[in-house]
Amino acid sequence: MLEACDITLGYRRGESVLRGISLQLAAGEWLGLSGASGAGKSTLGQVLAGHLAPRRGSLRLDGAALPRRGLHPVQWLPQVPELAVNPRWRIDRVLNEAWSPSAAQRRRFGIGDAWLERYPHELSGGELQRVVVLRGLAPGVRYLIADEISSMLDAITQAALWQALREEAEARNLGVLVIGHDAALLQRLCQRRVRLERGQLLASS
């Protein structure tokens, strides 16, 4: 169980993007998070994945604090894959930075063998996003924060990416927080859905 308790964070003094947010994500659970742009969805996601430190509040994984070094058990999957990879590395090196996915796993995510030789700018956004998602699934990862990972993708690429991720998550009982605008997509993927509005979480209908 990943628990966030009373998370408060703001970029400017006296103004908080997140106001005392508490949230629980169970192993194997898919939770949808929506909200207007600028509502702080991405900020919350990055707090959960340890990329931002909250001004107040705590994060616990199975009742214990999250590790400060080593592989972080909560991984953030960002919206723009082009920014999430080193532009000077070939895909082979990018994909193997955190762990070494097997050829079968590569195939399941539709990553062609010929891609490994290429540079990131030689892949399309959809192709690169698959590489970024698979890279984030290292053994030891328990939760994923999928931050609008398919909002730039066409429907087929989007469906393929989510199906592959769903298989992997089910096999390993990963908990997934899906951040996005697309109500139909969140409904498809998530049993439970919440909305972020004026810094607070509301249950979504």
């Binding site: 429907a155 087929i156 469906a159 592959a164 997509l185 498809r188």
Partner: peptide
């Protein structure tokens, strides 16, 4: 068309 989340979401 069929891959849309509100259709089959089919891969």
């Amino acid at each position: 068309w069929r891959a849309l989340p509100d259709n089959d979401f089919a891969r």
